[in-house]
């Protein structure tokens, strides 16, 4: 579905961020992109939706050549790729609902979006997505009033409201605690399965990558040095990607943790529900 061929990025300063990247992402595949900081992971996914301009090579999404698009065509292409960010990248002073609806910006005109007059179907879909990520109660909260995990859920809902064919996910768990990280990764995984979405996930945490991805690509200094199944990722390969380290001491994820994970999440949702009622109680 997504094909990168010979993609390279050289900054005006002469630094090479990416070199001859060849990757094909089939429909519905969740691919984790791992590698040390500065290996070019962020640059790679930003090249796909052209937040960063690649200097060489071709990127095709279905039948559209992305590298040559501009203006209206580029915006149309961008709306078919949902992006999820490391620091959530929500607009703090807008409400949760406004943040999610901003995923629809590629579909509506300026005045419509400026006056917040979104089509009924878009609003209903936004609400359904918020319900799905467990934040229906928080639609009128300001984004900066949420916890890290909740914000990332809003970010996910925003990306999905674009009705994307593909998710570009940039370090979704870097600012989250271990448990929330796992919940977020599981959510992304489930949503990809539900909608048959492909995804490229940049991630630092190798254990999470192994657990939640179908395929792992290792990047080092702008070049692909590993491409294979999570099970093939051995200590030797980690050494080629990251350099020398005693990889065996990396703790394996515990199965029991995974089964319990959904329970506390719903408990917390209830707790913040109470807070919402208390906060809005005076106004209603």
């Amino acid at each position: 579905m997504l094909t990168l061929s010979g993609v390279g990025k050289r900054y005006p300063t002469g630094d090479r961020a990416l070199n001859e990247i060849e990757v094909t992402l089939p429909k519905g595949q969740v691919m984790a992109l791992i590698g040390p900081s500065g290996a070019g992971k962020s640059t790679l996914i930003r090249c796909v939706n052209r937040l960063v301009e690649p200097t060489e090579g071709n990127i095709r999404l279905d039948d559209v050549e992305l590298t040559s698009l501009s203006g209206h065509k580029l915006r149309q292409a961008r709306r078919s790729m949902g992006m999820i960010f490391q620091e959530y990248a929500l607009v703090d002073r807008l409400s949760v609902m406004e943040n999610v609806l901003s995923g629809r910006l590629g579909y509506v005109g300026f005045w419509r979006s400026f006056l917040r007059r979104y089509p009924q179907t878009a609003v209903a879909e936004a609400f359904r997505l918020l319900e799905r990520v467990g934040l229906a109660h928080a639609i009128d909260k300001r984004a900066d009033a949420l916890s890290g995990g909740q914000r990332q859920r809003v970010g996910i809902a925003r990306a999905l409201l674009q009705s994307p064919k593909l998710l570009l996910v940039d370090e979704p768990t870097a600012s989250l605690d271990p448990k929330t990280s796992r919940q977020i990764m599981r959510l992304i995984r489930e949503l990809c399965a539900e909608r048959d979405l492909g995804a490229i996930i940049n991630i630092h945490d190798v254990a999470l990558a192994k657990q939640f991805a179908d395929r792992i690509v290792g990047l080092r200094a702008g070049e692909i040095v590993f491409d294979g199944q999570p099970s093939e990722l051995t200590a030797d390969i980690l050494t080629t990607i990251y350099g020398e380290e005693e990889w065996d001491t990396t703790p394996e994820p515990l199965e029991s943790d995974e089964q319990n994970a959904t329970r506390p999440a719903s408990k917390r949702t209830q707790a913040s529900n109470v807070v919402t009622h208390m906060a809005t109680g005076g106004a209603s």
């Binding site: 961008r78 790729m81 910006l105 579909y107 300026f110 925003r158 674009q162």
Partner: peptide, 17 residues
Amino acid sequence: EAISATGASRLQVMSYG
């Protein structure tokens, strides 16, 4: 950046981002 990534136009990026 996030608003641009949704495919928003220039004016929309201004008004939302």
